[in-house]
């Protein structure tokens, strides 16, 4: 594909979008859960709905950025910052 450049950078981008995107969607969902204060059943319903919207958005964004490095950096940084924030906010799985 003309839109792609190099096998390994592409593999790295796919992995970043899939795994990093999953982790990022998870922490976004958990942070939203902290903010909204939902608990129990309501919390699970909320996370079930929000997670997939977050995940698809992150994957689309991950593939819309031109630079492989920027994509990987952005998702890694996003994960670092948000998981850190979640930890500091006292979140636990």
């Amino acid at each position: 594909m003309a839109a792609l450049s190099g096998r390994w950078p592409l593999t790295a981008r796919i992995l970043t979008a899939a795994v990093g995107g999953y982790a990022l969607s998870t922490v976004i969902t958990l942070l939203l859960l902290l903010v909204t204060g939902f608990e129990g059943r309501e919390a699970r319903m909320f996370t079930s709905m929000i997670f997939f919207i977050a995940y698809v958005t992150i994957v689309i964004v991950a593939f819309s950025i031109q630079s492989h490095k920027k994509t990987i950096g952005l998702i890694a940084a996003g994960n670092g910052v948000l998981w850190g924030a979640w930890y500091l906010a006292g979140g636990e799985l």
Binding site: M1, A2, A3, L4, S5, R13, V59, I60, F63, S64, I65, Q66, H68
Partner: peptide, 13 residues
Amino acid sequence: MKGGLRKSMTWLH
């Protein structure tokens, strides 16, 4: 990804 948003989305799709 080279080739702009539409090409990237076509590839992803």
